[in-house]
Design a binder for these strands. Structure first.
Lengths: 133, 133
DNA sequence: TTTTAAATTTGTAACGATTACAATTCAATA
DNA sequence: TATTGAATTGTAATCGTTACAAATTTAAAA
């Protein structure tokens, strides 16, 4: 696992330091789209010298290398996702949990966008999840 | 126009104060999805005593009454929209402009969401607009 | 009209997530 | 081992937003 991650980072032009490996590993294992705070609080148990700035720096680097995507559902709550394939996010307004869901297609009237270059597509729903209904 | 807005606010259970009318009117006239800062800087010329807190309060109220929606594309840049119908937003990463586009449908694999209650649907794209290409 | 109470607006201070920046540590190579 | 650049760290600054209390406005009652 850790070797895989190290190789994966390298193949994306990222030098695999301990912190970078652990942070990416965390994101792969915890598919609940954690915030920087969550990542920090969990990983600092492992790496006591860890700094939040490192996590910010690392996510910034991962974004530039396009191996993570950012999830902005709430203004004050930035989350990160290691799954870069197009998929939707559902946030429960009761418990706050964020779920993934699969998208087959988005049908757009080809009015404006046909002349634009689309680089990223983001889709999220809000509501109440099964457990909270 | 102003009468229409006043009536519209009333019909949504909002007492139409001067500030509320002006803020809603601004949002209807400026369909570029302004931030609180933009609204404040433009309206303070009209209402010199205007406070940013009032704009925050007012948007919060409008959201509760569901006559405006919030647009969160960037973490640090919350925008507001008087159009509450489902539509997509396109943000140009070069000039920062936010455009609307029409959506016919979003095709979702009915796996997870069938048991969830969906209250809001948000969709945004990023890329380069016609002018910046 | 005056009084009173409630709602609205306002200004200031506090908050919290993120970023800037300089210092320190680490890793690779000569 | 010494040197150099990259990565990490901690602290301080920034900025959008919120909390809160005071001031103002509005509406209703006396």
């Amino acid at each position: 696992m850790k070797n895989n991650i190290s190789e994966y980072l390298k193949s994306n032009g990222i030098k695999p330091s301990l912190q970078r490996i652990k942070i990416y590993e965390y994101l792969v294992k915890n598919k609940n789209h954690p915030t920087v705070d969550k990542v920090y609080n969990d990983l600092v148990k492992d790496i006591p010298t860890l700094s939040k700035t490192t996590i910010y720096n690392t996510f910034k680097l991962f974004m530039e290398k396009k191996i993570v995507t950012i999830i902005t559902i709430e203004e004050n709550e930035t989350r990160y996702d290691a799954d870069t394939n197009l998929h939707g996010h559902f946030k429960c307004e009761v418990c706050g949990e964020v779920y993934d869901f699969a998208i087959d297609d988005i049908l757009i009237r080809k009015d404006i966008l046909k002349e634009f270059e689309v680089d990223e597509r983001h889709l999220y729903f809000k509501g109440k999840c099964k457990n909270c209904l």
